[in-house]
Design a protein around this nucleic acid. Structure first.
Lengths: 205, 205, 205, 205
DNA sequence: TATGAATGAGCATTCATTCAT
DNA sequence: CATGAATGAATGCTCATTCAT
């Protein structure tokens, strides 16, 4: 069996195990078993538990950013791009709960080698959102009087809100990716103040 | 030395160790050392690692909710209450990074006995926010045409955004609790859309 | 509360705990709790776990030998003395299962300081039986052509059989001390060979 | 080194350690040391201390019953079968003092999982003796007017006597298996009463 | 007389990791 | 390419025992 395939099996098993048990509670024995190979082979291919976990994080991070990137049509107005990105995000996390658990919970919880890995991805997403906000500001013919720093904070908050909603939507049965995205747009774009006045964000214009 | 004092020392040491190392990686030996007592005493007073961690979660959760509750003056308009709550929240988390790490990261990452504990606290905060939104809607003389479910999602998103900003503010040096709270208000109350048009939320009116 | 009474309470608790849990599994904590006193007091009165266990063994051994001694009228013929001794033995062990467990199981299982203690008692009983056999032989006007050594073996076997029956009678519901003693007499006095021929031992002559 | 061999070594070491120290006092460290392997290997092969002890009991129980079974020629008269069985029994226990200590003392002293294991073996032996008694009764052309229950008691007493003699013979130097068996036959078959009259059981008729 | 507070030492168990084949 | 065999190092937890009061 070619190496690439074996490696994929191992990563699949590892993602599942790490996602469900957590980094420390997952044992290499269980992962090897689930992958259907012997433990030494896992070490031969992936060196150590740490490296294996890092590989999981990287793969899942790339899968997530790719899904979001592919979900967004870059020519649309900023709010529409955000809308599409959010839909892709909620959709992907709902379909890959173990991967999402690794990125959102495990990697950040278990210290330096891993937190850095996931931060890279997060920054990519934050940068994407930051760019959207800048574009929107330009389209509104406004000088970016919002300072850099403030924009970064807004993006951070937006991403955090989305992450939180992802967990909520996954847990609360019956909340679709679309609904979660709609809630996010209302919250982030329209703002609570506007919502109070009866103005909510809407996909149609 | 009286029991109550010793117990406090142990909890302090445990919060610090759990917060920095994580639940699994923290060893009872290290906690006992840091508390300046022998391991058996930790077991005598706090029964088990699980119970000790639960006690940490409970203490930190109560400290956090108490801080927020005390920071809010209940007669003010909803947005002002939110503003004050956020300031208290960011302030408390900045001053108790280990406690916040336990609540935000560790407890949620390590499965059922603990996740439930922190969920209770989180629900209390979400309920507080939900109530604020409802009050704001009433004050704006709007029928609560925002459905229950949508409000829950908004509150969830708001809390998630705040949690995310807390981590960000703690990490990025030089962001004060006040600044973080302002960013949150802009984000949550004014909304990105308004911000684009130059309307941001402001403490003065 | 006078020392003697306290000490009795402790020994009672210890016998029960050792009898039910075993020497190693019984904890000084549990014994102190059951006795209703603090642990240091147990140490003050009885020095150590080892000494405490030894004290239990001694007390129960004396109680058992006393019960047997008091049950036997020394002027009767040998077989009647044996009969009475067996009844007293089965009766006492049935009423003190924990004490009997200590003597029969725990003390012999846990090595030297204790095994010696119970051996002393056992030898006393074996000596009693040996004497009975010798008396019976004299009464039958037979030279003791049974060698010393053989007699010791017989006595040992008899005591072993009785001990075994005690456990069996205690476990099998509905076997009285009297029945157990009768079985023993049939077995030991009449012998299987005689039983086969229809001759069994009988209390009435 | 192949697994089966290693496993035997471990069981040998365990039987010796459990037999001499007792179940609780024996440490897995000591057993592993004595077996010449590391502790994790013991766990890998035998799961837990409890399982290891159970495996010891089972192995020794089977060895003992096999030795007795093989020592008995089934066509002989009942008393001769008993004689042969006893010789095999005393011989085996004398040669395996640690195994015998496990079966006779340790297993019965340490509660349910183990006591049940050894009870099974004991019942097999008691059943064998019971059958012998029944056969002897038939051969003597006697109705089995000995009630079931009485026979069970007799068998129990006989086995107990033998167990007791085994310990005695092992301790008292210079008592051979043959002598112990002879004493048992005199005791059990002839009965003390007969012995008093000068009639003892004899191998020759 | 009696106890609350405290600990040194040990034990069963697990796990990431490595050889020799 | 793949594995059966093996281990050093921790870790959670318990227990007999002792002071200071």
């Amino acid at each position: 069996m070619p190496r690439a395939v074996r490696e994929r099996q191992m990563l699949d098993a590892a993602v599942r195990t790490f996602g469900q048990r957590g980094y420390r509670a997952a044992s290499m024995d269980e992962i090897a078993d689930l992958a259907g190979v012997s433990k030494p082979l896992v070490y031969l291919y992936l060196n150590s538990k740490e490296d294996l976990f890092t590989a999981c994080i990287r793969r899942e991070a790339q899968a997530l950013t790719a899904a979001v990137r592919e979900g967004v049509r870059p020519r649309l107005p900023a709010d529409r791009q955000l809308w599409e990105g959010l839909r892709a995000f909620f959709s992907h996390t709902a379909q890959n709960p173990d991967g999402w658990a690794i990125l959102h919970l495990q990697a950040r919880t278990h210290g330096e080698p891993f937190a850095a890995e996931v931060s890279a991805m997060r920054e990519e997403i934050v940068a994407f959102v930051t760019r959207l906000i800048a574009v929107a500001a330009r389209d509104a013919r406004r000088d970016p009087s919002l300072p850099e720093h403030e924009v970064a904070g807004l993006a951070e908050a937006l991403v955090g809100a989305a992450e939180s909603l992802a967990a909520w939507a996954n847990a609360a049965t019956g909340v679709s990716a679309r609904q979660a995205a709609a809630t996010m747009m209302n919250f982030a774009w329209a703002g609570l103040g506007d919502l109070m006045e009866g103005r909510s964000w809407s996909e149609q214009r």
